[in-house]
Amino acid sequence: MAAVQGFRKTGVVGLEDLSALGLLPPEWRLRKGPVVVLECPEMIPCNICVPYCPTKAITMERLIDLPKVNWDKCTGCGVCVAVCPGLAAFVVDLSKEDADYVTVPHEFLPAPKVGEEVVLLNKHGERVGKGVVTRVWERNKTYVVTVKTPKGLGMEVRAIWVER
């Protein structure tokens, strides 16, 4: 690693970086429906997403390699969102006309409820709008939450906050 990568200064990884690392789903795949975005740009000794993916869409040669996604195989099921120890896996659905859908890991109480309006946060923690929760499930204390966001926010929103 030569110069310090930008995300190592900001804690925010941009779409260009993800694309250069092969972690950004291609246009054609984004148009088809829900698909995974693994924001895992460093060579962590970790492969947890690989054995858990039900369709074997994620592969890795060595434990320290970056995950590689087979875009045809990924169904956007969100299992990797639940199990990734880095909370670095997200599912986006940009295929709908009126709205985008984003699935994020959430480890805060209270648990979000389906139908509830929540605050949408981007990678910098800025409030970028409000969205409605469409699905919640839990695995080992991580909630996997899908929110409906205004159209155009699918690649922005990476967290939600429940305000009651």
Binding site: F7, R8, G11, V12, E42, G86, L121, G125
Partner: peptide, 14 residues
Amino acid sequence: GWFVHAAKIRRYGI
């Protein structure tokens, strides 16, 4: 630390 740990707190505005 590792990027993923940093991203986890940045997205909540820390």
